[in-house]
């Protein structure tokens, strides 16, 4: 098991309201348990605001969690401080949603990659330049890109640069947070193809976060559906598409495949206090 989450919880304080003595906290991530095996790609899918990104940030310990345990490579990292986390993050990289704000505009691509390489404190500068060129080629960019600044690239190219930066560390787990959502459909397809190729070469496991089941399907072998901070269904991808059980999964499916609103009532509610039950081989439903 590469990554295991056990009952991970994160609440954010809600708004204080006049004449309401009790503040209602927002349960962004509500007792989530999840496993990612080496070599499988897990898709984490849900609408905006369901807690996907918070979960990713908890895994990287960019946000402190309230309770639960995170086990990465067999080691409990939940109580590690920032200093001890640093070497672990080499194996645990992230590509962010917005390629316009995730790359420092004052650095050339060389500088961006170099900054990551410097963290590794590795061998000669010659070797580093060669690695930079190799990484750029791997993500489908030319060598001359090294001297250019992020603003000179299109959204798709920037996302390639962000992927190259993450690959500097040759991480075991790469978290892709809505990495293709802001791109147009053709570029989306290119990046997804690229991720497939890179996986064959670098053997990285992906945690692919998206609001769109249709896109998650292309890259994930297993999908976890998240709703209001809870995982409501997990199953192997094709099984989930063939036999969606939870009503929310069905709603997401019809939105992603046909842009149809599934049910008449807009606001689906979530019952708390239930648990994940195995309905079929590897198919768990919150009920």
């Amino acid at each position: 098991m590469l990554l295991e989450l056990k009952d991970v919880r994160k609440c954010f304080p809600g708004k204080r309201r006049l004449f309401h003595p009790i503040r209602e906290d927002v349960r962004a991530v509500d007792d989530v348990s999840l496993q990612v095996r080496e070599g499988e790609n897990l898709g984490l899918v849900g609408e905006s605001g369901c807690g996907k990104t918070t979960l990713a940030r908890l895994i990287l310990k960019l946000t402190p969690m309230d309770s639960g345990a995170i086990i990465f490579e067999g080691r409990d990292i939940s109580s590690l401080g920032q200093n001890k986390m640093r070497p672990i993050r080499r194996n645990l990289q992230m590509v962010f949603q917005d390629p316009y704000s995730s790359l420092d505009p004052r650095f050339t691509v060389r500088g961006i990659l170099q900054e990551a390489q410097d963290i590794l404190r590795q061998d000669s500068s010659k070797g580093k330049e060669a690695q930079r060129v190799e990484l750029l080629k791997a993500v489908g960019l030319e060598e001359d890109a090294l001297n250019r600044f992020p603003h000179e690239f299109s959204g798709g190219e920037r996302q390639r640069i962000a992927i190259a930066r993450a690959l500097v560390f040759n991480p075991r787990l790469l978290i892709l947070d809505e990495a293709v959502s802001s791109l147009d459909v053709l570029v989306q397809q290119q990046i997804i193809d690229l991720l497939g190729d890179l996986q064959k070469r670098f053997h990285t496991t992906y945690l692919f976060i998206s609001h769109n089941l249709r896109i998650a399907r292309k890259i994930s072998s297993r999908v976890a559906v998240m709703f209001k901070g809870k995982i409501v269904e997990t199953a192997p991808t094709e099984e989930l598409f063939r036999h969606p059980v939870h009503p929310y999964t069905r709603a997401l499916l019809s939105a992603a495949m046909d842009y149809q609103v599934a049910s008449a009532n807009d606001d689906m509610t979530l019952e708390r206090g239930l648990s994940l039950v195995e309905k079929g081989p590897g198919h768990f439903v919150y009920c």
Binding site: S48, A251, A256, Y259
Partner: peptide, 13 residues
Amino acid sequence: SNLDVTLQAKIMD
């Protein structure tokens, strides 16, 4: 284009 699919479906509706 900047909305998630659930909202996209509602706008199309």
